[in-house]
Simulated scan of single mutants.
Amino acid sequence: MKDTAINVLKILEESPGPVSGERIAEQLGITRSAVWKQIRELRRLGYGISSSRAEGYRLEEKTNRLLPYEINKKLRTRVIGRQIRHFDNTASTGWIAKKLAAETDPEKLHGMVIIAEEQTGGVGRLGRAWVSPAGGIWLTILLKPKIPLDHLFMITMAGSVAIARAIRKEYGIAALIKWPNDIFIGDKKVGGLLLELAAEADTVHYALLGIGIDANISLTELSSPLKDILTSLKAEVGHEVDRVALLARVLREFELRYQQLEDGEYDSIIREWKSLSMTIDQRVVIKTINKTFAGEAIDIDARGALIIRKDNGKVERVIAGDCFQF
């Protein structure tokens, strides 16, 4: 959204009643024709603005889009989200982040959030499709980590904790974390994360944390297999949620945990992750590339590996794989 449109919007927001196009033009030093052009743009962005020849323009309804202007009003972070790119539709926010990082020094992009109202080519773990229809929250956070290489995996843990905490604080819903990177409400998934690193040898050029939350997704629009395993916040609370408020909360919660990682407070992240885990102390079946086995998930270690006591009594660390709970 351009500065002129923002300035027109601010006038409408601050006015207790209708504002004439002439008055807006005078305040901003633009023509009435330019005012009308910005009103049209604001309406295109989802703002409900009424108009009448006698009274002028009135802001009737705010947009439901995740626009940077709206997010910044509630953000209150120092780094994460201070730069935002917003797209109505894109194949993948991760692809955009990679392109930006290739064109600009990642240090200058640290904390940037790339948001899409809808993704057509979202990718999850193991290259699986990430269904990303309109109504959800789909984003990538671009980071230039100052975290030791052997602790970078904890960025995902920090993100998982942030999402679970944000949902709990905003809606009073007991969101939990399912190892390795899913957010659940009850027995259904409501969100997920994916961490990608651009690195060579012991140098990390940048990290991308992809986040997806089924906020206002209508479950009736999902295919049958997905209906059985997914839920949305809209379905859980019985009405559409304020996506801007939730996203701002997630970014604030993430910045807090990310700062802990940069300060070397790894134990606090692990403790909080464990307190929100729906996997530890549960019977699970683990599928890795090489094998499948069952057992009880008894812990997560300092490297983020899931510790399984197998049915034969042996203990095994699982670094990566699919976890099915019963």
Rank of each mutant, 00 (worst) to 15 (best):
K2L: 14
T4D: 14
N7G: 13
K10M: 11
S15P: 10
P16W: 08
P16M: 08
G21H: 10
A25P: 09
I30W: 02
A34Q: 10
Q38Y: 11
I39W: 02
E41Q: 13
L42Y: 08
R44V: 08
G46L: 04
Y47P: 03
G48S: 09
S50M: 04
E60Q: 04
E61V: 02
I71A: 03
V79T: 14
V79I: 14
H86L: 05
S92D: 11
W95F: 14
K99L: 14
K99C: 10
A101R: 04
E103Q: 15
D105S: 15
H110Q: 12
V113A: 15
I114N: 13
E118I: 12
Q119N: 10
G122Q: 04
G122Y: 06
V123C: 07
V131Q: 06
A134V: 13
A134Y: 07
G135K: 00
G136M: 00
I141T: 14
M154A: 14
M154Y: 04
S160Y: 08
R165H: 07
A166T: 00
K178I: 05
W179G: 01
N181M: 07
I183G: 03
K188C: 02
K189W: 03
K189P: 00
G192W: 01
G192E: 04
L193I: 07
E196A: 04
E196G: 10
Y206I: 08
I213Y: 02
D214W: 02
D214K: 04
A215S: 07
N216P: 05
S218G: 12
L219N: 09
E221S: 13
S223C: 06
L230M: 10
S232Q: 05
S232W: 05
H239F: 09
E253N: 13
F254I: 04
L256S: 08
L256Y: 09
D263H: 08
D263W: 05
I269H: 03
M278C: 15
V284F: 04
K287L: 09
N290T: 11
F293V: 02
E296K: 15
E296M: 12
A305I: 01
I307L: 12
K310L: 06
N312Q: 12
I319G: 02
A320L: 13
A320Y: 08
F326E: 15
